[in-house]
């Protein structure tokens, strides 16, 4: 089986304090993986490591067939300046930046793709609206449209449905299903176990280290969830250098 990502004894963290400790495992190409765990478990940290915003303290991340900058990534709180005068259409079109570069023409083909992406998330009619006028759910739809345009084989979503209503969530889950059927690798950080059980075949349960990484119904069993909940959240300010063998 080919894999899209492989973590080998991966430790990620901040100022030498690990947020994820000694994670090893593979994400097969085309996987639809949920990452679950309590707050502070290292879920977002893992995604930041995968896209290369954060360098590993130890261990490695191998990416097959994609560079770190080619991965489509939806952060938990996009630091978008909503007062900036750009329209929905313009913001969605930035998904083409990698492809078009500094001067690449946005021709008729690209314009159709942008319009299709906007239509696919149900924002037709909003093209000319400035982004400051969007609601939270519309904003999230717009960011999904940009992910669509990025056309990446690996897509990372960090809590994409937080503060999003049911209708929008189910629409966006439809898009995730479409990506899965297109054999893209999708990794999503989620808190809603119901959504995870229903839509995600595999789950990685994290609590600063791997608790379980398995088919969803096995990973999210009572024993594992209890173990995850006992995680110690605060790091030890007087911790020694870690001597654990790989």
């Amino acid at each position: 089986m080919t894999f899209a990502l492989r973590f080998s004894d991966l430790t990620l963290g901040y100022e030498r304090h690990p947020a994820i400790h000694h994670l090893t495992g593979e994400v097969p190409a085309g996987d639809l993986l949920a990452v679950c765990g309590p707050n502070g478990a290292g879920k977002s940290t893992l995604l930041k490591g995968i896209v290369g915003i954060l360098s590993p303290l130890d261990g490695t991340i191998e990416r097959v067939g994609v560079g770190p900058r080619e991965i489509a990534y939806l952060p938990q709180a996009a630091d978008i300046d909503r007062s900036f005068p750009v329209t929905v259409y313009e913001l969605v079109s930035t998904g083409l930046l990698r492809e078009a570069g500094l001067f690449g023409r946005i021709g008729r083909g690209e314009r159709t793709r942008i319009e299709d992406a906007i239509a696919a998330v149900g924002l037709t009619g909003f093209e000319g609206r400035s982004i400051g006028t969007l609601s939270g759910g519309q904003m999230q739809r717009m960011l999904f449209a940009r992910l669509l345009l990025q056309d990446s084989p690996v897509i990372l979503l960090d809590e994409p449905f937080t503060a999003i209503d049911d209708k929008t969530t189910s629409d966006l889950l439809g898009l995730i299903g479409r990506w899965h059927s297109e054999k893209r690798t999708v990794i999503a950080v989620l808190h809603d176990f119901e959504v995870v059980r229903k839509h995600f075949p595999r789950t990685l349960l994290l609590a600063r280290e791997k608790v379980a990484w398995d088919a969803t119904q096995n990973a999210l069993n009572g024993e594992n969830l209890l173990k995850a909940r006992r995680m110690v959240e605060a790091f030890d300010t007087a911790a020694h250098a870690c001597e654990r063998a790989a």
Partner: peptide, 8 residues
């Protein structure tokens, strides 16, 4: 507009 996206 979106420095985080540019960085990614």
């Amino acid at each position: 507009v979106d420095p985080g996206f540019l960085r990614s």
